[in-house]
Amino acid sequence: MAFGPHLLLATLEGLVTAAVLALTALGLSLVFGVMRVVNVAHGEFFMLGAVLAWAVASAFGGHPAVGFVAALVVAPLIVGALALVADLLVLKRLNYNPEATIVATIGLLYIIQQAALSFYGPEARPVEAPFSYRVLLPWFGYSGYKLAVIGASILLLLATWFVLARTRIGMVMRATQYDSETAQAFGIPVDRVYAGVFAVGAMLAAVAAVLIVPTSQAHYLMGRDPLLLSFIVVIIGGLGSLRGTVVAALLIGVSDGIISVFFSPTLAKIIATLAVAMVLVFRPQGLFGTAAR
């Protein structure tokens, strides 16, 4: 294939990756920003979203769109509820101590994987896309659904931004993030804000998974890569920064597609991971973040 179309394809693929990544990483970033908790189980909430999407979609017969829309609503709600329970039973009792919560969320990661293995099984299972339309370009074909994923993701990101920046809920969250003790003194129920943020963070990962699962499949070990990539995005974007997260997701997603055009794929992964580690070493506040607090 000629270089131009090749680059176009790599960019399109990168945009899809970026769209899903932005949503997933936003959840991680929100939880870190407000609660100062590094949620290692974040990838497992992503996995749960995909697995539940399969369960919901296969419970509905008829046109695949029906099951998919149901999954888009139901799966994130269930995941959010589970996250709420995890927050109440574990994280809250640890007083959100950063190191203790990392260990606890590693435990959570294993427990969720185990639950998925026990109740869902070891197989990879597909979820049918709500529509199948193949966009025909002169050089290659491309999934219309993937383009729709990009659009849906943009809408969801805008909605999240609106809630955070323009509503009372967002203001309460920002106040808690800025100074939780003062917020408490002003009558903000910090515990409930934390629980809510943890649930919303998990739901964002679940939504991202439901969106992307029709282009791949649900499997109980699928949470590891989204976790690593989200970490990368959140680090580059600056921990807790919404705009930084989106920009970093674009950067990582698109460059992941394009680097693989030039390097051997495994080498590309090595270079990308190493680059991120170096960013964290030499610029811990991220490329776009302000100084760490």
Binding site: I106, G107, I112, Q113, Q114, L117
Partner: peptide, 19 residues
Amino acid sequence: GWNVSYLGIVGVALILLVL
């Protein structure tokens, strides 16, 4: 038939320990 493996055991152990 539950396929309980090191995953579940390690997970529960970590959380109980840290709590």
